[in-house]
Amino acid sequence: MIGASELLTPQQLAEVRKRSDLRGLWVVFHAWAVIFGAMAVFVWFPNPITFLVAVAVIGARQLGLAILMHDGAHGILCHNPRLNMFLSQWLCAYPMLAETGAYRRYHLKHHANTQQPEDPDLILSAPFPITRKSFRRKMIRDLTGQTGYQQRRAQILNALGPSDWTLSRRLENYWNKLGRPTIAQAVIFAILAASGHWYLYFVLWLLPFLTWQQAITRIRNIAEHAMVPDNSDDFRNARTTKANFIERALIAPYWVNYHVEHHLLMWVPCYNLPKTRAFLIANGFGPRMETKGSYAEVLRMATSRPDDEDQRGKLVHNARRQRVTGTMNEGFQPTDGTAA
C-alpha cells in the first residue's frame, strides 16, 4: 500500500482531504433536485421522449445517491459526522433500499484486499472479458427489470426470514433490516401523492430504479475493476475512466469515474477527486495510473471474448451467480457479474 505522503505534498494533502458540510448538502440536494425536476418536465411535457429521458436521468441520479452513500460510509461526505450519517442514511441509502453500516462493512473489505483472493468483489470482476452475446443478455435482464426484481425479491425474502417463523418474528426481522428503507419509500410516495401525481412513484421512481440504474451500475462496475492490468499494483488494480458531459449525466455521476484516485486516497471526498487527479498528474504519477478514454472503450474490452466461447461462459456465469446471490441481501451490492 502506497502512503499518502508518497503521492502528494503536505499542502496538496491538506487541500484534497477537506470535507465540507455545504458541499455535502449541495450534492445531495442536487441529486434530489434533478430527480424531481426530471419528473416535473415529464408532467409538463408528457410524451415518449421526455419519459425516456426522465427514466435515464432519474436512474443516473439514483446511482448518484448510492455513490453519495458510499462517501457517507467512508465518513467523507460532510465534515460534521452527524450530518454525514444523516444525509448518507436518510437521503441516500434508505431511498435506495440500502444501509450505510452494512455497506461499510462489506466495502472496507474490498478496499483492504483490492483484487486479491480475500476481496469480496473479486468473484464479480473475474468473468471479464465476456462475449458480446453474454453482455447483451445481461443488459436485457437489467433494462427489462429482471435483475432488479430478482435482487429486490431476494432482499425482501431475506428480511422476512424463514417461512416457519411466527408472523411477529418475521415482522420484527423485516423492521430491523428494511424498516427504515420502507419508511423512505413511503415518504417518496407521499410527496408525489401530495403533488397530485402519485403514479410517478411507480413509473419514474421504481421503474428507473429497477432498469436504467441497474444497467449503468453494471457498466460502472465493469469499468472500475474488470480486466485491470495488475491486481497487485495500487495504480493499476482499479481504473479511472474519462467521462464526457453525457456520460457524467447518464452513467457516471458525482465523479465516480475517478476510481484509481479513490483507491489511492479513499478518504478524499468525491467532490475533490478531480483535483486529486490533477495533483497526481502534476507529481508525475499520470503514466502509472490505469486510465481509459471512455466507457465505450472499456465495454469494447469487456466484450472482446469470441462468441464461440459463449456457451462455456454461460455455465461459468450460472455457477458463479449461485455463489454471489447471498451477498446481495444487505447494503448496496453490485449487479451480478460485475466488479464493485
Rank of each mutant, 00 (worst) to 15 (best):
G101P: 03
A102V: 09
Y103T: 06
R104V: 11
H107A: 07
L108V: 13
K109T: 10
A112G: 12
N113M: 11
N113H: 15
Q115C: 12
Q116Y: 04
P117R: 08
E118L: 13
E118Y: 05
D119I: 07
P120I: 10
D121I: 05
D121R: 01
L122W: 01
I123D: 02
I123H: 06
I123L: 15
L124V: 02
L124E: 02
S125T: 03
S125K: 01
A126K: 11
P127S: 04
F128R: 00
T131S: 14
T131V: 03
R132N: 07
R132D: 06
S134V: 09
F135T: 00
F135H: 06
R136F: 08
R136N: 11
R136G: 13
R137H: 11
R141I: 03
R141F: 12
D142N: 13
D142M: 05
T144L: 14
T147R: 03
G148D: 02
G148L: 00
Y149V: 05
Y149Q: 04
Y149P: 01
Q150L: 14
Q150G: 02
Q150I: 08
Q151R: 11
R152F: 15
R152K: 14
R152M: 13
R153P: 05
A154Q: 08
Q155L: 09
I156C: 01
I156P: 01
L157H: 14
N158C: 14
A159M: 08
L160G: 00
L160P: 04
P162E: 01
P162I: 05
S163R: 11
S163I: 13
D164I: 06
D164L: 10
W165G: 07
L167M: 09
S168Y: 10
R169F: 01
R169K: 11
R169T: 07
R169N: 12
R170W: 06
R170G: 08
L171D: 02
E172P: 00
N173D: 13
N173A: 12
Y174S: 04
Y174D: 03
W175C: 00
N176Y: 11
N176F: 05
N176A: 12
K177F: 06
K177V: 04
K177N: 11
K177H: 14
L178K: 12
L178Y: 00
G179P: 05
G179E: 01
G179F: 00
P181W: 01
T182Q: 02
Q185K: 03
Q185H: 13
A186D: 11
V187T: 09
V187Q: 09
I188C: 07
I188M: 05
I188Y: 07
F189T: 02
I191M: 04
I191L: 15
L192E: 14
L192G: 00
A193L: 10
A194L: 14
A194V: 03
A194H: 04
S195L: 13
G196D: 13
W198V: 06
